[in-house]
């Protein structure tokens, strides 16, 4: 008897499902979906690679620089890479439309390269990665980031000391 009431109510209220794929499906803003990678912000610290449980992220040293590779089909959407990334260079978007034909499976990846450059101060070969922002106060300005990108680790330290970083 009790259930009859609910039954009628549900009939009146109509279906609570959405007609995906024929209509749009609602996606919450926090949805943890497809990984996005912003090369200019990456410090090359490899924290994301170390916390990625399925091994979807891989860094390789190549003659040209540090190669970043991320396989979408291996990712389990855990979000740890984003959580531990110091610069939010790696980020989970709310895009979950990742179905694809088998012949596209090798393109379901992000391939980027942090190139080598020569230190603008001492000329040593170094990675043109973004500087690590942890403990930097006041935070780096965009110009400083570009300036530090062209420095080797030792010269970055020197520049930081001249900057008068309190920490």
């Amino acid at each position: 008897m009790n259930f009859l009431k609910i039954f009628v109510r549900n009939l009146v209220n109509g279906p609570s499902t959405v007609s995906f794929p024929f209509g749009p499906a609602w996606t919450p803003a926090r949805m943890r979906g497809r990984i996005e990678f912003k090369l200019p912000s990456c410090t090359g610290c490899r924290a994301c690679e170390q916390v990625c449980a399925p091994g979807a992220i891989r860094f390789d040293k190549t003659p040209e620089g540090l190669r970043f590779m991320m396989w979408h089909n291996t990712c389990v959407f855990c979000g740890l890479c984003e959580f531990y990334c110091p610069t939010d260079a790696i980020h989970q978007s709310d895009d979950w439309h990742m179905a694809h034909a088998v012949d596209q499976k090798f393109s379901m990846a992000i391939r980027e390269l942090i190139p080598y450059t020569n230190c603008s101060a001492c000329g040593m070969k170094t990675l043109a990665s973004a500087p690590n922002p942890v403990g930097i106060n006041p935070p780096y300005t965009p110009e400083e980031i570009e300036q530090h990108r062209q420095l080797c680790p030792a010269c970055r330290k020197k520049a930081l000391a001249e900057r008068g970083n309190p920490s």
Binding site: R30, M31, R32, F77, G79
Partner: peptide, 15 residues
Amino acid sequence: KECTFGNRMDIGANT
């Protein structure tokens, strides 16, 4: 769960 954690089952709340 979807709105708060971004996933329906593996909510990834802990670290």
